[in-house]
Deep mutational scan, measured.
Amino acid sequence: SDLEELEKFAKTFKQRRIKLGFTQGDVGLAMGKLYGNDFSQTTISRFEALNLSFKNMCKLKPLLEKWLNDAESSP
Rank of each mutant, 00 (worst) to 15 (best):
E72W: 05
R46A: 13
L63K: 10
E48D: 00
L60T: 10
S53L: 01
K61T: 04
Q41S: 12
S45Y: 07
L50T: 12
D2E: 13
K59H: 11
C58M: 12
I44C: 02
G28C: 03
D70Y: 11
I18S: 08
D26V: 04
N56D: 13
L60D: 02
K61I: 06
L52C: 07
L50R: 13
I44H: 00
G32R: 15
E65C: 10
A49T: 04
P75C: 08
L29N: 09
W67N: 00
K59M: 09
A49M: 04
L50F: 14
P62D: 04
K59C: 07
E72K: 06
L63R: 11
C58S: 14
A71M: 11
Q41T: 09
L50Q: 09
F22L: 15
N69S: 13
A71N: 15
L64E: 00
F47G: 00
E48V: 00
R46S: 12
S73V: 10
S45T: 10
S53Y: 00
E48R: 01
L6S: 05
I18G: 04
D70H: 06
L63T: 09
F22R: 03
K59N: 11
Q41R: 12
W67H: 02
C58P: 02
E72R: 06
F22A: 15
N56F: 09
L50C: 08
M57P: 01
S74K: 14
R46L: 09
E72C: 08
A10G: 08
W67Y: 13
D70S: 08
N56R: 13
E65Q: 07
P75E: 11
K61R: 11
K61G: 04
G28S: 04
K19D: 15
A49R: 10
L68M: 06
E5A: 14
I18E: 15
L68A: 06
E72M: 06
L60I: 08
L68I: 13
L68C: 05
E65I: 14
L64N: 01
L29F: 07
S45A: 13
F54H: 14
G28V: 03
S53D: 10
G25D: 02
P62N: 04
E48P: 00
C58V: 11
K59G: 07
I44E: 01
P62I: 07
L68Y: 03
E5L: 11
K59A: 11
E5M: 13
D2N: 07
N51I: 05
R17D: 00
L60G: 01
C58W: 14
N37S: 12
L68Q: 03
P62T: 05
F54Y: 15
S45M: 10
I18A: 09
L29W: 06
L52W: 04
P75A: 14
L29K: 14
F54T: 13
K66G: 10
E65L: 09
S45L: 06
G25Y: 15
S73P: 08
L60S: 03
F47T: 01
I18K: 10
A71Q: 14
D70G: 12
E5W: 06
L63Q: 07
G28Q: 02
L68H: 03
A71T: 12
C58F: 13
P75N: 08
F47M: 03
A10L: 00
E65K: 14
K59S: 10
M57F: 04
E48S: 00
W67G: 01
K55I: 06
K14A: 03
K55W: 07
N69K: 06
P75L: 14
L68R: 01
S53A: 06
K55Y: 15
Q41P: 10
N51P: 00
F47Y: 04
S74A: 14
E5T: 13
F54S: 09
Q24C: 05
L29E: 13
T42N: 14
L60N: 03
L60A: 07
I18W: 03
N69A: 10
K59I: 10
L52G: 05
Q41L: 06
F54R: 14
D70E: 14
K55P: 05
L63M: 10
E65W: 04
K55A: 12
A49Q: 15
M57V: 04
M57C: 05
L50A: 13
K59L: 12
K61Y: 07
Q41G: 13
N37T: 11
E72Y: 05
S73T: 09
K66D: 13
K61M: 06
L29C: 14
I18C: 06
K66W: 05
L52P: 00
L29A: 14
P62R: 06
L64V: 04
K66N: 11
L52R: 01
K61Q: 11
